[in-house]
């Protein structure tokens, strides 16, 4: 991804901010021209809840370019508290800690170094919520 593309999407990548369709509730990462689900043109700015449940996860072992130094890394499919499903890297977990259905929360992390222009890119990742007794 180009630096400009990263910069344009920072509000989503930093704070899970985006736009929800006023009619059908579909989430969009930026303010779209038209809703991808119901074709409505009305949107409300929202910040997605920073916690939810892990639906499923996997581990990437042969990574794409610019992710070589992070492999193996985990990708999770997460259902947030408002029902929105998002993809995220998982972090701060012990190997036996990942299980489908566990509660996870968003944290702010370095994601990668952009090879071509050399800037450091940050964004959200999710980690398991510590169980408190």
């Amino acid at each position: 991804m180009r630096v400009t593309g990263y910069w344009r999407n920072i509000s989503f990548l930093y704070r899970l901010a985006g736009w929800k369709c006023t009619h059908c509730g579909a989430f969009h990462h930026y303010k779209p021209v038209i809703c991808r689900r119901c074709r409505s043109r009305e949107f409300t700015q929202v910040e997605l809840p920073g916690s939810g449940r892990l639906i499923a996860y996997t581990v990437i072992r042969s990574p794409p370019k610019e992710f070589e130094r992070y492999a193996p890394y985990s990708i999770g499919l997460i259902e947030l508290e408002d029902g929105t499903k998002i993809l995220s890297q998982l972090t701060d977990f012990k190997e036996d800690e990942l299980r489908d259905g566990i509660r996870v929360e968003a944290v702010f992390r370095k994601v990668r170094v952009n090879g071509e222009q050399g800037i450091i890119e940050y964004g959200y990742k999710f980690r398991p919520v510590l169980s408190r007794s």
Binding site: M1, G5, Y6, R8, N9, L13, H29, A56, Y57, T58, I60, S62, P63, P64, E66, F67, Y70, Y73, I75, L77, L87, S88, Q89, D100, V111, R112, E121, G123, K125
Partner: peptide, 19 residues
């Protein structure tokens, strides 16, 4: 800027579907 940004490649998405 989404799957690409976090490195969620074709195999990752396919693996999640498989799960």
């Amino acid at each position: 800027w989404y799957e690409g940004f976090m490195g969620a490649d074709f195999y990752a998405i396919s693996a999640l579907l498989y799960r």
